[in-house]
Amino acid sequence: MPTEPESITMHGQKKSGECILKARELVMEFGRKRVLDGINMQLNQGEILAVVGGSGSGKSTLMRQLALLQHPTSGTIHLFGKNVTNMGELRTLPLRRRMGVMFQHGALFGDLTVLENVSLPLREHTGLSLETIEEVSMLKISLAGLEPDAAALYPSQLSGGMRKRASVARGIALDPEILYLDEPSSGLDPISADAMDELVLHLKKTLGLTILLVTHDMDSLWRVADRILLLAEAKIAAQGTIQDLVASANIHAQRFFHGPRGRAAGASHDQ
């Protein structure tokens, strides 16, 4: 790996607020349909960036591209200061260890227990003893808010919320710098969804994670997002803090944040 001396401070840690992920003029086409059209965005160290938009607005596609799971039709992506747009699968491996992904439905391996799922990245990428790996994995499982007993269960025995948490635990197994969360609170009951928001904030605080989050949960936006990117019609319609977006004159932002749900979430947050 080439060095990035300018980004290392005295304590070997990155300066907060520094850009670690940058996309320029991203375009994605499926056949003749343009899903993303000239997206420019960046993700800064230590922030929680929420990508929002209606169904089919391309937000999941954007996340998949930024997580190096899909190649854009055109445009460039810089991750940790390196151009990764057309990097081969093998060359991206060292970068992938520095990022964790929570998939919408968990994407846990069905024939492994939760503990085995979470320890898989550690087994694969470290030379630690099995005992240590399992202890560290238990730590991550507990950090993700699961009871220790859940570690022995198989994914088919878990509820939707537990699956998402287990997926988060696997995502943070190697202490990544960026955590991608795809719809962390979708399909959860309000209590679990609140708990998921808490978890996101907790992870940011304790592990200093940078988080990119795809959601359409209004309450999550108010509670966890430092900055929001609103996608509409394949472009970025508006971006900024939630207050910026609520005050925005953009028609899509108006629709999104001044509908009944948007207003209700805002009102409950103001209390």
Binding site: T113, L115, E131, E134, E135, M138, L139, S142, L143, P148, D149, A151, A152, L153, Y154
Partner: peptide, 13 residues
């Protein structure tokens, strides 16, 4: 705060 030792790990049935 979250320590758990390998001896008390839950095992699948």
């Amino acid at each position: 705060a979250r320590s758990i030792s390998a001896t008390e790990l839950p095992k699948p049935y």
